[in-house]
């Protein structure tokens, strides 16, 4: 079994079949956005139309959740960028007591199921009598977004190494100049990638959000309500396409930003 030998036919078929299994279902989301049937999920669609895009555009109840989702995602990924980068910088600088504990702490919010993060925050809000607001949603989202930025930044710090920083100091730069002229340009694309992944993750998050939103509605929560009690089903598909594209594009961009490096973004969601 050489690595350059031709793969067995059965393996090739199983691998391609598996990839198709992962991708074909999404195609249906696009197809059903054009169906003329809005009361059932009939296949094949009895007819095709583009009217649902206009209907979705004019639905008043879609815009506020969209704005809320964008605001939450922007705030959360911004916070995560600052906190994740700081943490990565500290971890890259030194080995110290409790280092493993800290890396575990950073990963924990995403390693444990979302329902635990959600229910924990819900318990804390109940004990502290904290009313639900945009802030409570951001609190949850930023917490699990930190690890995304951290993973990207820490890998880049590791590659950067100490020699460039030492060279910069030897040439007379102080820490702030080194940060501005050496660290930031080298870190830039990793941070951009991490920030975009965090944005995508927050924009799409629903499980933690249902515990921290109260009566507010983000776009995924709007979608969830439509799934449970469908009204104009193809409109939900139109929104699903928007959500899909809004998460798909940042991921693709993050991949191209960090491609070629040994650490490619997205390895550990």
């Amino acid at each position: 079994m050489h690595s350059d030998a031709r793969p067995p036919l059965a393996l090739t078929l199983a691998a391609i079949g598996g990839l198709l299994f992962l991708h074909l279902p999404i195609v249906l989301i696009f197809l059903y956005a054009f169906t003329t049937e809005d009361r059932s999920y009939q296949f094949p669609p009895p007819g095709l139309t583009t009217e649902w895009f206009a209907v979705a555009w004019n639905r008043e109840d879609i815009w506020p959740p969209l704005y809320l989702s964008l605001r939450v995602a922007a705030l959360s990924s911004g916070l995560a960028l600052v906190l994740g980068t700081l943490c990565a910088a500290a971890m890259a600088r030194a080995r110290f007591f409790g280092r493993d504990t800290i890396s575990l702490l950073v990963v924990l919010p995403i390693a444990l199921p979302g329902i635990i993060t959600g229910m924990s925050l819900r318990s804390a809000f109940a004990i502290g009598d904290i009313p639900f607001s945009t802030f409570t949603i951001v609190l949850g989202h930023a917490t699990f977004c930190i690890v995304i930025v951290y993973n990207n930044a820490v890998a880049r710090f590791r590659r950067l190494g100490a020699s460039m920083l030492e060279a910069s100091a030897d040439l007379g730069a102080n820490s702030f100049q080194t940060f501005r002229h050496v660290i930031l340009p080298n870190l830039g694309s990793a941070l951009l990638a991490g920030g975009m992944l965090a944005f995508a993750l927050s924009f799409d998050e629903v499980i933690v959000t249902t515990f921290t939103a109260g009566q507010q509605s983000t776009l995924p929560i709007w979608m969830l309500n439509e799934l449970v009690r469908p009204r104009q089903r193809p409109v939900t598909n139109v929104v699903a396409i928007v959500v899909f594209v809004a998460t798909f594009l940042p991921i693709l961009a993050a991949y191209y930003l960090t491609r070629g490096a040994e650490e490619t973004a997205g390895g550990g969601k």
Binding site: I26, A240, T247, I251
Partner: peptide, 8 residues
């Protein structure tokens, strides 16, 4: 597929 929207 790993990163694309869970709800979708």
């Amino acid at each position: 597929p790993l990163w694309s929207s869970y709800l979708v």
